[in-house]
């Protein structure tokens, strides 16, 4: 096993352990609070909070399609990130051809954005 490889392993061991620790870090105060908080549940205290009125109807409802449109555009541009980050890191070695290639790629996406803009699906009423 060469040195660089074991350094990678060490780094990801850190990330893994830290991720576990971060979850514990979130749980610890909740567990600590278990022991010291008073527990006096009552009917009106555990009602859904709606400024003192009885809650009417169901909060788990269908939402406007607008949110899904935004989410779709988000996914398109987020995937673009996956392509643009490695390109950006290697940019200095790649030179002018890679620049034009990426410009064509981004250009197509910008056309898509302009289409959305003209279609008024970025408008929020």
């Amino acid at each position: 096993m060469n040195a660089e490889y074991s350094e990678y392993l060490e780094q990801y061991l850190f990330v893994g352990l830290f991720a576990l620790f971060a979850l514990v870090f979130g749980m610890l105060p909740l567990i600590a609070a278990r022991f010291v908080t008073p527990k006096k549940p009552s009917k009106s205290k555990q009602d859904t909070y709606e400024c003192g009125l009885e809650a009417v109807g169901e909060p788990w409802i269908q939402f406007r399609a607008q949110y899904y449109v935004i989410a779709l555009i988000f996914i398109i541009f987020d995937v673009e990130t996956v392509f643009i980050y490695p390109w950006a890191v290697a940019f200095k070695k790649l030179g002018l051809e890679a620049f034009w290639a990426m410009m064509i790629f981004v250009g197509i996406l910008v056309l898509g954005l302009l289409y959305e803009w003209r279609k008024k699906s970025l408008e929020w009423e």
């Binding site: 979850l23 979130g26 909740l30 609070a33 908080t37 006096k40 555990q46």
Partner: peptide
């Protein structure tokens, strides 16, 4: 730390607990 932890009756208890973590 010493405030009561109020969970609404209708809440999804598991999600309600996991979200802050």
């Amino acid at each position: 730390l010493i405030k009561e932890d109020i969970v609404p009756r209708n809440a999804d208890k598991v999600l309600h607990l996991l979200a802050p973590i």
